[in-house]
């Protein structure tokens, strides 16, 4: 499954790293007549402002991956830190951290995003950060449980007996055990970041200074009868990318 995921994801990664390789047009510029169906030169057609759709999709890859990367990294960073700390220290700190995790966990995430983007203005970075700041509680719980299990294993006890500091023990001996659960949530969180951003775009809350696939779908939907390709291709690309993320995860958790 992992191979399948990589296969699906690699063109997206390629587009994000070297956009020029796939398509040579400025994604914001008018380069041809508006609403051209897929033709030679513009293999996916042009949109209502005469922009090359393939170039826009390619440009969107960078935004999508950045979004997923920020959301996932923040989640792993915060979830990992909170989980390790809570599991290792126990007592009041553990209790306080877990209550806080619960607080964040029950917040309706889409509502928080709606609030933040409506009130502060739509920005890709803001969406990515908010997603990261609200997605970690589940992971924190998993890692806390893992840490609790590891805490009394021999190698940790030994390190403790040898006088290793708390930080050292957490980083050297406990953190490695947290890697598996962290990788397991990375896929779903990356996918849900992209899907959530698409949802916000549908509500008209996308950052116009980035190209977002979700926003391309929204625009394309309103031109469905003039140009089906405008919604279809960005939609397929979102499906492809999110399936790829999910596949990568499935493989890390289950296949022996």
């Amino acid at each position: 499954m992992r191979a399948g995921g990589m296969l699906l994801l690699s063109p997206v990664i390629l587009a994000a790293i070297v956009p020029g390789l796939i398509s040579g047009f400025d994604p914001f510029a008018e380069v041809a007549a508006p609403l051209l169906p897929p033709t030679e030169g513009h293999p996916l057609g042009t949109d209502d402002l005469g922009r090359d759709l393939l170039s826009m999709l390619v440009a969107g890859a960078r935004g999508a991956l950045m979004l997923a990367l920020i959301a996932v990294s923040l989640t792993i960073l915060i979830g990992g830190a909170v989980g390790l700390l809570a599991g290792w220290t126990g007592g009041y700190i553990d209790n306080a951290l877990m209550r806080f995790a619960e607080f964040i966990g029950v917040l309706p995430r889409l509502l928080v995003l709606l609030l933040v983007t409506t009130l502060l203005g739509p920005s890709l970075l803001l969406v990515a950060t908010t997603l990261g700041l609200t997605s970690w509680p589940g992971l924190a719980r998993l890692i806390r449980a893992e840490t609790l299990a590891q805490k009394h294993r021999e190698h940790v006890m030994a390190a403790r007996a040898l006088g290793c500091g708390n930080v050292r023990i957490m980083l050297r001996h406990l953190a490695p055990a947290a890697i598996a659960p962290a990788l397991a949530v990375a896929g779903p969180i990356g996918a849900s970041a992209i899907l959530t951003e698409a949802g916000l775009s549908f509500l008209g809350l996308s950052d116009p200074n980035f190209i977002s696939w979700g926003d391309l779908i929204r625009n394309g939907q309103s031109f469905f009868h003039q140009g089906w390709w405008l919604a279809a291709f960005p939609g397929l690309l979102i499906v492809q990318t999110c399936v790829a993320f999910a596949l990568l995860t499935e493989s890390t958790t289950n296949d022996p």
Partner: peptide, 26 residues
């Protein structure tokens, strides 16, 4: 936000004369 299309088109035109228009939909 519902005027984004105007901003996008003007940004295209202004880019041709070296003006970078940053859209701020609120």
């Amino acid at each position: 936000p519902n005027f984004t299309k105007y901003a996008e088109l003007m940004a295209q035109d202004l880019a041709k004369v070296g003006i970078n228009l940053v859209s701020r939909p609120l």
